[in-house]
Amino acid sequence: MTSLPPWAIGPFELMVHAESHLREADDFGRSIALISFDNAIEVAITTYLTLHPVQRGGRQYKRDDVNQWMQDYLTKLGFFEKELEKRSLTWSIEKSHIIWAHRQRNEQYHGGQKGIPDIITLQIARNAALWIFSVLFEVGDPEAALEQAILDRTPQQPPAQERDFDMAIDAQYGIITVGEQDYYASELLFAVDHPAYRDLGGKLIGTFGEEAMEEVEP
């Protein structure tokens, strides 16, 4: 995963969770994705406001202001609006759109709404979560960080036998009997030591040459 400060891991994990469900492309996944992206926005702002100034570039805020901003979702967006002004930044995602997505999330989570979040609402929540996260925690490319995290958690495909390796190994070693069971040498080696299987197969192919491999091909 792309290196992040430890205090940014919490909101980032919510975005990874949301993205994973979004990619499931089913109704349940879309509902969970909206809830998690929306939660990531609130958690990012909450986390930022509770950091020590040294963890947020020396920025300091009055305790009374922080207490006011921490009241609810809208007051947290109010803090973010002031923060944008201080940094001479503008809304990349319109504030009204973020509030719309948040209210749709509330309908999903609290209101018992049976409908499935539409793609536009999901896109607003996702883009807003990534953008707010990038501003507060100064992450240059949150999309790349998110994509890498998803890749890191994707189960790797198990290795498969390769036909040329099988032919080369079996031509050299044939059938091996274990107990009362016969196995092709390639099958047995692949099962017990995949790196050795690839190493031996590659060496034998190099030794036999292409013409010899064509001769042993069934």
Rank of each mutant, 00 (worst) to 15 (best):
A185F: 15
P158F: 12
T154L: 14
A128N: 05
L189Y: 09
E85L: 10
L122N: 02
L89C: 08
M70H: 03
D182T: 05
H97Y: 07
T90A: 15
V139K: 03
R103D: 01
R103S: 00
I119E: 14
E143K: 15
L188H: 08
H110M: 11
Y109I: 11
K114L: 11
Q113E: 05
Y109A: 10
L204W: 09
R198Y: 01
A149H: 09
T121S: 08
I99V: 14
H102V: 01
L122S: 05
P142V: 01
Q104W: 00
S88W: 02
D141Y: 04
R163V: 15
I175A: 11
A145S: 14
H194D: 00
K114Q: 06
W91K: 04
L130W: 10
T177P: 00
F137E: 05
S92V: 11
I150P: 07
E180A: 10
S92Q: 15
S92I: 13
A129C: 13
D170E: 14
K95N: 01
E147H: 07
N106D: 08
M167K: 06
G112N: 00
L74G: 08
E81T: 12
A185C: 12
A149Q: 11
N127K: 09
D166F: 01
S186D: 11
L189F: 13
D141P: 03
L136S: 08
A145Q: 06
Y173F: 15
T177V: 14
P195H: 11
Q157E: 13
G206E: 07
A160M: 13
H97E: 13
E180I: 08
P158T: 13
N127L: 05
P159W: 06
E94N: 12
L204S: 06
L136N: 05
R198K: 08
L77H: 06
